[in-house]
């Protein structure tokens, strides 16, 4: 397994897109920090901090692209046979890819967070991290928001990986991942309206896309989702595992 993880990291490291995406994220974060410095009325530091100077959304996009391509490219380039004919099994190949994706997600989030801290110190040295936001210190709100986003990201990535096992080309898988990102966000908003009428609908996976919001603001979101926050967290993880398992079954059945 260690060898497989090293191989996945090696491929990720040698993809120009990996570093270009990271650089793009950093540049965008710097750009929004400059806007916050020049136009503080329009680009409030607090709002930008909570969004990692837009880095949070970019982490989502980068990870969707990475998850989609990590599996689809092996079939597109015909490299899957080289991974599978060795002493390793499909399950090990699949898990090694998941581990590397998780490592990439954590790595990107660490960079986005570090950039947020650093940029805030530069553009607004007097920024108060202890000020109240959502009835708690802002730093705590920030950490909960980040943690919640990562949890929801895992759910989304499991869906993207599942879709990636169906596609023959990288580009199609990535495009579908991006479209899916917006569709699920819209679907979550629509379905939540129906939850009020048909309570059983609250268990659907789209509801779990609001887990991040509910972690930060449980009172407001509990009224919408009709689920307790620990239940939401459990269901989010449960659906992530379920979609990942289905993705593995799809990956295992796929002809090489």
């Amino acid at each position: 397994m260690g060898t497989l993880i090293k191989q996945e990291l090696y491929k990720l490291n040698h993809k120009k897109g990996t570093w270009f995406a990271l650089l793009f994220m950093v540049v965008v974060q710097i750009g929004f920090a400059v806007l916050s410095w020049r136009y503080p009325k329009f680009f409030g530091t607090q709002m930008l901090v909570m969004n990692n100077y837009i880095g949070g959304v970019l982490v989502d996009f980068i990870m969707i692209a990475s998850a989609a391509s990590m599996i689809a490219m092996e079939f597109q380039y015909g490299t899957i046979k080289q991974l599978l004919y060795r002493k390793y099994y499909r399950s090990q190949v699949f898990v090694s890819k998941l581990i590397v994706l998780l490592m990439q997600m954590i790595g990107l989030q660490v960079v986005a967070t570090a950039m947020t801290g650093g940029l805030t110190m530069v553009v607004n040295p007097k920024f108060d991290w202890t000020q109240t936001a959502n009835a708690m210190p802002l730093w705590r709100d920030y950490l909960l928001t980040t943690g919640g986003s990562m949890l929801v990201m895992l759910l989304l990535l499991s869906l993207v990986i599942l879709m990636a096992t169906w596609f023959k080309t990288n580009a199609a898988a990535i495009a579908c991942g991006f479209i899916g990102y917006f569709v699920t966000a819209v679907a979550a908003q629509i379905i939540i309206m129906f939850v009020q009428r048909w309570h059983w609908l609250k268990w659907n996976p789209f509801t779990m896309l609001l887990t991040g919001n509910q972690i930060v603001d449980p009172k407001t979101y509990h009224a919408l989702t009709m689920l307790d926050t620990p239940v939401m967290i459990g269901c989010t993880l449960g659906y992530t595992v379920l979609f990942t398992l289905i993705a593995y079954l799809s990956f295992r059945r796929r002809a090489v």
Binding site: H14, K15, G17, Y77, K81
Partner: peptide
Amino acid sequence: HQALRHVGALIEYPGIYPFMTGRQHLNL
């Protein structure tokens, strides 16, 4: 698959990652 640890193969067509060099493929 244990017995495959000492097997090398080229099946149908070579699987190539376009973003890597030949040496990087061999390293991988």
